[in-house]
Design a protein around this nucleic acid. Structure first.
Length: 415
RNA sequence: GGAGGGGUGGCAGAGUGGUCGAAUGCGCCGGUCUUGAAAACCGGAGUCCGGCGACCCCGGACCGCGGGUUCGAAUCCCGCCCCCUCCGCCA
């Protein structure tokens, strides 16, 4: 949600920034301005009538006389009419305002920008399915649930659990509180995080219960402080969420159909930060640095890409993707991403903080970033750790969390 | 799933349909007193919207949320949400 005060104060500036996302966004802004103007007129009139009513009834003890009653009834009628209009125009303004995406950061590029490449990329080899064999069981999962589902079996379960433990421990060390959030949520949280109405077709809904399955624990983490006023001492507040994630992948038919690159259900450890507005730029870089540290410790060659304005979701002002080199595909593919959503989600969820005892509460900034996933991180580990004979060496840092040191070649001992 | 009870300011807790934004207590902030503190006393304090982008000022709204009745609703009616107790079921 954009700040209506900012829009009133500097409509041209806001229009120019929104315009980077395309003409519809800029047009939406003008609708907001028009509705807001009408809303303010109606509101002023409504409040005048209410003030009259209050003056008339304040302090009164008994019932009014007949002529008083006639006058008061007339006032009440006018108020009702104005109140209805105020509600209608106000709702239209809110809906229009809520449909506007966040303002892109000045340094969010117009075109994809590779910021750096790290590690030895360029290797070719077997892809993760060839390496895993039935330890990734797509056929039986399809029989059970349809396409884009997978059974993870045997040693790969130990690998996932090790990855999760490793990531959660690392983040806890850095001050993130581990959290397992609900993944079945009400509409409110999806609206508040900007996934609704923006990405409605990607979200599984359970209409019988008015609940939705979340596509990322970001939803539950952001909503953790919904409608709260934090004190400055609470910030930064950082959480490491672990949950399953559910995505319909509508519109992705035929894309990434092999293996576990794009699934309807996967698990993820997610970083989420609530910070003071001044701190969000630095926090964004820091989250990215953690993602890179993880790639380094897992020996995954990667590059960092600044996402173009066109591809930012509704809520992000700026976004980086970390892309892993995948020898099975012979190219870089998205592994993790990390976004600065500035005050966009905080406004929609009404999350504020108090800077000092006397100041008014201000909206916080929120940021999110992937730590590890049981789909793409595992793909990157398998494909980059592979040997000529089809065995895979897993990074030492995972061993103490229960990951096998080496995965045997697919087909060995019946796998 | 069935049957009851309840949601009021940071907390506790009053509130015959008519100065109730709301008593009172605790906690909190400022002051007086004190060498300092405590006690006592005095004062203050919520959030949101509009009026000019202002912590002053003016108006309006907010007693779980949303509707309704009424000249007037914290108080009456309806729907929803949440919490508690008992029974059933269940990991």
């Amino acid at each position: 949600m954009l700040d209506i005060r900012l829009i009133r104060r500097d409509p041209d500036g806001v229009r120019a920034m929104l315009g980077r996302r395309g003409p519809p966004a800029a047009a939406g802004l003008d609708k907001v301005l028009e509705l807001d103007g009408r809303w303010r007129e109606v509101t002023a009139e409504l409040e005048k009538v209410r003030a009259q009513q209050n003056r008339a009834s304040r302090g009164r003890k008994g019932a009014p006389t007949e002529e008083e009653r006639a006058h008061l009834a007339e006032l009440a009628g006018r108020r009702r009419k104005l109140a209805d209009e105020e509600a209608a125009v106000g709702a239209a303004r809110e809906a229009q305002l809520a449909s506007l995406p966040n303002l892109p950061a000045a340094d969010a590029p117009d075109h994809e920008q590779v910021i750096r490449e790290v590690g030895e990329a360029g290797a070719r080899g077997r892809d993760h399915l060839e390496l895993a064999g039935e330890r990734i069981d797509m056929a039986r999962a399809a029989r059970l649930s349809g396409s884009r589902f997978a059974y993870l079996r045997g040693e790969l379960v130990a690998l996932e659990l090790a990855l999760v433990s490793y990531a959660v421990a690392k983040l806890a060390d850095k001050g993130f509180e581990p959290v397992i959030p609900p993944v079945l949520v009400r509409e409110r949280a999806l609206y508040g995080t900007g996934f609704l109405p923006d990405t409605e077709q990607q979200i599984y809904g359970l209409p019988a219960d008015d609940l939705y399955l979340t596509g990322t624990s970001e939803v539950g983490l952001a909503a953790l402080h919904q409608e709260e006023i934090l004190s400055a001492g609470d910030l930064p507040a950082r959480y490491a969420g672990f949950s399953s994630c559910f995505r319909r992948e509508a519109g992705a038919a035929g894309k990434d159909t092999r293996g576990i690159f794009r699934l309807h259900q996967f698990d993820k450890v997610e970083m989420f930060s609530f910070v003071e507005p001044d701190a969000s730029l630095a926090e964004h870089e820091w989250l990215l640095a953690i993602q890179e540290e993880i790639c380094h410790e897992l020996s995954i060659p990667y590059r960092v890409v600044a996402i173009p304005v066109d591809d930012l979701g509704a809520s992000a002002a700026k976004k980086y993707d970390v892309e892993a080199w995948l020898p099975g595909q012979g190219r870089y593919r998205e592994l993790t991403s990390c976004s600065n959503t500035t005050d966009y989600q905080a406004r929609r969820l009404d999350i504020r903080y108090r800077e000092s005892a006397e100041g008014r509460p201000l909206h916080v900034h929120t940021l999110n970033g992937t730590a590890v996933t049981n789909s793409r991180t595992i793909i990157a580990l398998l494909e980059n750790g592979q040997h000529e004979n089809g065995s895979v060496t897993l990074p030492p840092v995972l061993h103490r969390y229960g990951a096998p040191e080496v995965l045997a070649p697919a087909g060995a001992d019946g796998k």
